[in-house]
Amino acid sequence: MDWSSVIGLLLALAGVFVGHTLDGGRFASLFQPAAFAIVVVGTAGAVLLQSERRTFLRGMRMLRWVFFPPRGERDKLSREIALWSLSARRDGLLSLEQYMGTKDLYIQKGLRLVVDGIQPDKLRSLLEHEINGYEFTQRQAARIWEAAAGYAPTIGILGAVLGLIHVMENLSDPARLGSGIAVAFVSTVYGVGLANLFFHPVGNKLKAIVADKVAQYEILLEVFHDIATGDHTRVIDERVASLLVRH
């Protein structure tokens, strides 16, 4: 659990609700199902319209990373790299086949290319292509939250206009004016609040997580290249040091 994300979200909500009550408002006035449906469902529809379905679903699944980020395994990975280096120098490249049982597909591919004796330059090219594909796919998924942040305020305004239309249609019935005015203003609050207190922060955090993973893969690329070229273990040790520097 990433408690900083939980605390940050709670502080953001607390700031809104406490400020509202200090100004004489009531909690209940901020809970409007109609406004919520307009903003949230409308924003989801707009984002889905601009995105491929699989990209949209991948971005939704990535939301859990905000509160349960992928476990940092830099220490474990550094130990594995040391084993690869030692095994390759002592028993040859074919000995690395025993380490290909990892769940990480990128590491599997890198080890397989080394074991297969692919030329170092070709190996680098293939792994760079793999990194670029991973980064593009993950960033596109993370961007659905940025898109949501862009659409939500405008859809909130749309909800406000719909609420005012409801008010105008019921001017002769004062009992129904309050609900229309509430939808009008709360829709705007939902749109702006969700965009700036949730959608934007989620998008930025997911991009940071993806960037960190890409940085690890780039270091692994250099490690696989070093092993394939038979570089001294000291060179690989420096790679491991750079891997741990952001731990």
Rank of each mutant, 00 (worst) to 15 (best):
S125V: 03
Q119P: 00
V115Y: 04
S125P: 00
G110S: 04
P120C: 09
V115R: 10
E130P: 03
D91Y: 15
D116H: 06
L96S: 08
Y99S: 02
Y99L: 01
D121F: 05
E97A: 10
S125Y: 09
M100N: 11
I131H: 12
V114R: 08
V114Q: 07
G117Y: 08
L113R: 08
K122I: 13
E130A: 15
Y106T: 00
S125Q: 14
S95H: 11
L93M: 14
D91L: 15
V115P: 01
G92W: 08
L127V: 09
E128Q: 14
K103E: 15
D91W: 14
D104P: 05
L93Y: 12
T102A: 10
D91P: 00
L111K: 03
K103H: 12
G92H: 09
H129S: 15
L105F: 04
H129D: 15
L93I: 13
R90E: 08
I131P: 07
L123G: 06
L94H: 04
E130H: 13
L126W: 09
L113K: 06
S125L: 12
D121Q: 14
E130I: 04
R112C: 00
L96I: 10
Q119M: 11
E130T: 07
L93E: 05
K122A: 14
E97I: 01
T102F: 03
D116I: 04
L126R: 11
P120I: 08
I107L: 13
M100T: 11
I118H: 01
G92L: 04
R90K: 15
K109G: 00
L127P: 05
D121T: 12
Q98D: 11
L123H: 09
K122R: 13
L123K: 09
L94N: 06
G117W: 07
D104E: 14
L93A: 14
L96A: 10
D116Y: 05
I107Q: 11
P120M: 08
D91H: 13
K109L: 13
N132T: 13
E130W: 07
R112H: 11
I107H: 01
I118R: 08
L111R: 05
E97D: 15
Q108Y: 04
Q98E: 14
G110P: 04
E128V: 13
P120K: 10
L113W: 09
L105M: 02
D104M: 07
D91T: 01
I131V: 15
L113F: 14
G110D: 03
I131K: 10
